[in-house]
């Protein structure tokens, strides 16, 4: 997987930087499930720099390292017309202290319905779905999940407010997600006692210190379906640097609460994205 990524990256580097028209940073970063957004929250923005009638491709890798777990994500995506976004992501979850690992694939689709992030009073509004499927289903069923696959549907609204904070632009995002997933789906979907969709609220706020440099905070509400262990809401603080229209780098501090019975899971978040 790493070799593939390096090969892909060097291939992309050798191509002319055919970036689109969008303003720097307005494609966001790529969140852990492959959708353009912050670190843990999908935003209404469409990945990359493709404006009207333009298309772009992107690849990303990110890593979340907390006390007892490591989550590695790798994905590719494409977008068209600042309207459609497609993504394919593989998540590898290592249970560092418990032992073992598992993999989940996420297919993501996002459609920009209305509003323009920078230009309209109405926030940019997008609807998205994420179909998630385990590659080996042992662990989800062992912890009491009902399924080893599931689909999240979300509605996101994002808007940039110019010169809102000490002359700096402010991005606000709110997302509502319907989901059955336990810990993103890494611990399966639903449980014997609760296999219904839950509506979860997610939000992000970021200040653009410069057009290419953002600092922000995020919150992601989580369901609590499994009997064997509590699941808690997630939070992070991040810094994102949009080096140019081809590369961005995000680093953050995350608090994932309790995971699989191990409490106070805190640590780092790192993401690298390439887009053309």
């Amino acid at each position: 997987m790493k070799a593939l990524f390096i090969a892909l990256l060097s291939l992309l580097l050798s191509l002319p930087a055919a970036a689109g028209s969008k303003i720097i940073a307005t494609g966001g970063s790529t969140s852990i499930e492959g959708a353009a957004g912050g670190g843990i929250v999908p935003w209404a923005v469409i990945n990359g720099y493709a404006s009207s009638d333009q298309w772009s491709v992107n690849s990303f890798t990110s890593r979340v390292g907390v006390d007892d777990f490591t989550l590695q994500n790798f994905g590719i995506g494409a977008s068209y017309n600042n309207q459609w976004e497609l993504s394919l992501t593989r998540q590898k979850f290592n249970l560092d202290t418990i032992g073992g690992d598992l993999q989940q694939d996420v297919f993501g689709l996002k459609y920009h319905i209305a509003g323009e992030l920078l230009y309209s009073d109405l926030p940019q509004i997008s609807i998205g779905l994420q179909y998630k499927k385990h590659r080996n289903s042992g662990l989800p069923f062992a912890v009491g999940a009902k399924n080893d696959s599931g689909t999240d549907v979300y509605l996101a609204a994002s808007k940039v407010y110019f010169a809102a904070v000490a002359g700096r632009n402010l991005l606000l995002n709110a997302t509502v997600r319907a989901t059955k997933a336990n810990q993103l789906g890494l611990l399966g979907f639903g449980s014997a006692s609760d296999n219904s969709y839950h509506y979860m609220f997610e939000s992000s706020a970021a200040i653009l210190l410069r057009p290419d440099l953002a600092i922000g905070i995020e919150f992601r509400q989580k369901p609590n379906n499994l009997a064997f262990a509590d699941e808690q809401h997630w939070r992070d603080i991040f810094v994102g640097w949009f080096i140019n229209q081809n590369f961005s780098l995000v680093g953050g501090y995350v608090d994932l609460g309790s995971i699989a019975g191990l409490t106070q899971q805190q640590g780092y978040y790192l993401a690298l994205e390439a887009t053309f």
């Binding site: 323009e116 230009y119 110019f162 010169a163 002359g167 410069r210």
Partner: peptide, 18 residues
């Protein structure tokens, strides 16, 4: 031109999009 002034001007021009 300071970033704050740039942002302020952009914020006045952006709504003309429509």
């Amino acid at each position: 031109i300071p970033i704050a002034a740039q942002n302020q001007l952009l914020g006045m021009l952006a709504p003309m999009y429509g």
